[in-house]
Design a protein around this nucleic acid. Structure first.
Lengths: 156, 156
DNA sequence: ATCAAACCTCAAGGTCACTTTAGGGGAACA
DNA sequence: TGTTCCCCTAAAGTGACCTTGAGGTTTGAT
């Protein structure tokens, strides 16, 4: 609510068109607190243009397999005032770059071991590096999740 | 059903312990036809030890973001007889290796563009290469899915 | 013979990230 | 003044991937 309504602000339809994200998804992101809007007297959403960047960042982060909850906590670390600077984004994106780096490394390891491992039978053993590697990337729920909040997936 | 019951076959509990996968998950995989068992006279499941490898492969594939449906169709391509050879696994894994390769390339591209892009403001524009890159990996539903069955996520 | 531990089935519940549906209200333009 | 489009909310639906629960059977050690 540090928002000073401007005529150049975007409607949800504009946002959808410009970001390539469905209106329903924008609503959803807003419910989750990932983006922010003010309302016109008619209760229509209006978004500061900067929210476009937020949406873009959200989508990019998602493509890295980062869950929305993580994305939110990253975005929450940005200054809440409207004056988010280059430096803020860069700092925030650093963490994802590291994550990305790690992800690449794990995948490369996986790939390098695929030849020497998958056909050799060791895949059935706890000792197999490929199989164990999986635990570091493995998903709970769906999709690869490299981030924390790793509950032990089964308690034997 | 090409199964010749052996005393060395594993119970579902054994499978769970040795594969690190919950019993309920093994049941689930079996329902989906990803793994196979025979039954004792008391209707208890027994798994050939080779099923351990199948489970391992399933988990590894999942860590690459490959959906179970894809994994199933890959596993279905293996000889149904019990005599699955090294070469069969290697052949089947080839496809995933390519997928892996692609995944690494996309992530690397993403990483390389992160510096030059995320702080510059272009992220809010359709022209941003990083933002567009996202479309090539983007998920529908949850988690990155590089495989086919890409429906257009929003029809504007 | 008893009793816990392990197994069975089937149905329902839960999470994530959305989309769809249903039933409205307000705005822009000819 | 329409009428057409865009917007609103709340709730339910979807699909992938499991987990939990209820109620019952079997095994195996004492």
């Amino acid at each position: 609510m540090a928002t000073a309504p401007k005529l150049t602000d975007l409607s949800v339809g504009d946002m959808a068109a410009r970001s390539g994200v469905a209106i329903s998804t924008l609503h959803y992101y807003e419910d989750l607190g990932l983006i922010e809007s003010w309302r016109t007297p008619a209760n229509h959403r209006r978004y500061d243009r900067r929210e476009l960047r937020r949406v873009a960042v959200i989508r990019v982060a998602q493509s890295l397999g980062i869950p929305l909850s993580e994305i939110k906590s990253m975005l929450d670390r940005l200054p809440t005032s409207r004056a988010v600077r280059k430096a803020d984004w860069q700092k925030a994106s650093e963490r994802w770059k590291d994550e990305l780096e790690l992800r690449i490394l794990v995948l490369q390891e996986l790939r390098d071991q695929l030849d020497s491992c998958i056909g050799c039978g060791c895949l059935s053993l706890e000792a197999c590096p490929l199989y164990n590697e999986q635990d570091k990337v493995a998903s709970r729920g769906s999709g690869p999740v490299l981030f924390d909040e790793r509950v032990n997936p089964n308690k034997t």
